[in-house]
Nucleic acid binder design. Structure first.
Lengths: 194, 194
DNA sequence: CGATATGATTTCGACTCGAAACTATATGGT
DNA sequence: ACCATATAGTTTCGAGTCGAAATCATATCG
């Protein structure tokens, strides 16, 4: 399965390395008012998720954690003024969170920028390879664990392109162009979904 | 820098996706006596590190955390009988940990096996791409943060190949063939180290 | 209208994490 | 030999994560 002469390419080695890179990318480097891992992830999620997915439940699903834990994390971000709570008009149980101006400012210091920069410095072909490989791995893991998959609307089976935007059959809403790259936790992979 | 028509390949998107894959790979799937993230990482580290690096300090460096935190994590693994403590003969301050038989057995249920399987299913070319890209990203991040780099002895600048084994100039010891794929926290990248 | 499902929150105990204080052993300079 | 300093490891503290279970409120289905 793997070349014994090249243990660096063994699946186990690569898996550990991938986790290691992901983990070390989140480490902070001494910013003043820094956040925890979970808080950064939540802030990033709410900044990138489509409106229908900006809820505690959707974030819990994204993080593969419980709603209780997600609620805690969100609560501290709200207390810090980085997220703003809004009630849903259509469903009295549901709430929605928006990243505030302070939250946007905080994201400027996202520790992930180091990994972003490293990826930006990769040759174009390598970046393309990652863009092909990572969603595949994500899907396989989600499948193996029965977890919900996460993806962007533009790649979703519920999406139909229309002139200068699109339509999501899942939430029955049309999408603005800027929305087709946003995260959705009701994602269903298009096409090559076996 | 990134193709606006393909937001999936943007460095930010890829960075988040990489972290997401790394994170979800660590999630457990309901094994009975499961460990926490940090505990799995520690167990894996002590199973894969070269003898000289099987210490609390080396693990702390690997995890980019404090020695205090590392000490705690190790303590619980020791209490569970998964690691065994041994005093160093040469240095009265230092201790070394070995994975016990029970620890090896526990590693059979490592949640990372899902990611390993997913990587094993990748086409050979994609696996090779990861083997090229991930160490590069790891090194860039470590460099940008002034953190110690981690690597395997076979790729280390301190290593000289010799008949059927090798020699590490850093710890001044010869290495058995099985050791050249092990982790070392005194790693110094060979060759292309600018 | 009642049973049940769903969205969200709270509480609890075990654990992580960083920082700081602390113990013990090495090492270096005088 | 002696003292200062560095290093390896542990302990303690407070804030936070995490999963599980209990609790509320609102939807939805029969």
């Amino acid at each position: 399965m793997s070349d014994p002469a090249n243990p660096q390419a063994a699946p186990g080695t690569l898996a550990e390395l991938l986790v290691h890179v992901g983990r070390s990318a989140r480490g902070d480097d001494g910013a003043p008012a820094r956040l925890t891992d979970a808080q950064w992830t939540a802030l990033r999620f709410f900044a990138r998720a489509i409106r229908a997915s900006r809820t505690p439940s959707a974030f819990a699903s994204f993080q593969a954690t419980t709603r209780g834990t997600a609620s805690q994390t969100i609560k501290t971000l709200e207390a810090r003024g980085l997220l703003e709570r809004r009630r849903s008009e259509s469903d009295g149980r549901s709430v929605r969170f928006e990243v505030t101006q302070a939250g946007r400012a905080m994201l400027e210091a996202d520790p992930l920028r180091h990994l972003m920069a490293a990826i930006a410095h990769l040759p174009e072909a390598d970046r393309a390879a990652l863009a092909r490989i990572l969603p595949d791995l994500s899907a396989q893991i989600a499948g193996a664990r029965g977890a919900a998959q996460v993806g962007t609307c533009g790649n979703c089976d519920h999406y139909e392109g229309r002139g200068g935007g699109g339509y999501c059959a899942c939430v029955a809403q049309s999408l603005a162009p800027f929305e087709i790259g946003q995260l959705c936790t009701r994602f269903s992979p298009r096409a090559a979904a076996e």
